[in-house]
């Protein structure tokens, strides 16, 4: 039995302890904002925050989550998340949208640690999030805009 919190709510899981957090979130907890894209930590579509840090849920066995706090795109909140959401809307960042939950989770984590990121900081945080529609230019600008909003 694994106990953890998901978006602030206490949860337990008593299935196969090898089950990746991704599939616990999606199949058992029915929160589908977190996506499957590769299963091998190459694309970042499954990014969640585990104890406050970005984590690829597809390669995180639920056994590793014991006692941890998990936050998904549905539960992300705070000044950084608000600014990111606003900036994403203003620039119409998403195209197909499938990778965007992961992009947003990484972007929020970046801004929590680096309120005024440089291009290099953005590359450093975001290069793990693939977007096949290649919305990268808008992702970059939206992160800068979000940083500006938080400052101003």
């Amino acid at each position: 039995m694994v106990s953890f919190t998901l978006n602030g709510t206490e949860k337990t899981f008593d299935g196969d302890p090898d089950t990746p957090l991704l599939w616990v979130i999606r199949d058992f907890e029915k929160l589908t904002g977190t996506k499957y894209g590769c299963g091998v930590a190459q694309c970042g579509a499954c990014t969640v925050h585990l104890d406050g840090s970005p984590r690829r849920s597809c390669i995180t066995p639920i056994s590793m989550v014991e006692g941890s706090d998990v936050v998904t795109v549905e539960g992300i909140s705070g000044a950084e998340a608000d600014a990111v959401h606003k900036a994403w809307l203003a620039l119409d960042v998403p195209q197909c949208g499938y990778c965007q939950s992961g992009q947003i989770m990484s972007a929020v984590a970046l801004l929590q640690l680096t309120p005024k990121p440089s291009d290099e900081d953005i590359d450093g945080a975001m290069a793990g999030n693939i977007c096949r529609c290649a919305t990268y230019q808008r992702v970059r600008q939206a992160i800068k805009d979000a940083a500006g909003m938080m400052e101003g």
Binding site: D18, G39, V40, A41, Q42, G44, T47, S53, P54, R55, R56, I59, T60, P61, M64, S106, A107, A109, L110, L113, T114, D121, D123, G124, A125, M126, A127, G128
Partner: peptide
């Protein structure tokens, strides 16, 4: 791959640290 960098503390860049993918133990991919 994916491209990562050491960062100031040799544990990655803010937003994509080593720990974003590498956990406390090897994890089998199924």
């Amino acid at each position: 791959q994916p491209p990562v960098a050491r960062g100031e503390a040799d544990i990655g860049m803010p937003g994509m640290m080593c720990g974003t993918c590498h956990g406390p133990a090897n994890v089998d991919v199924v």
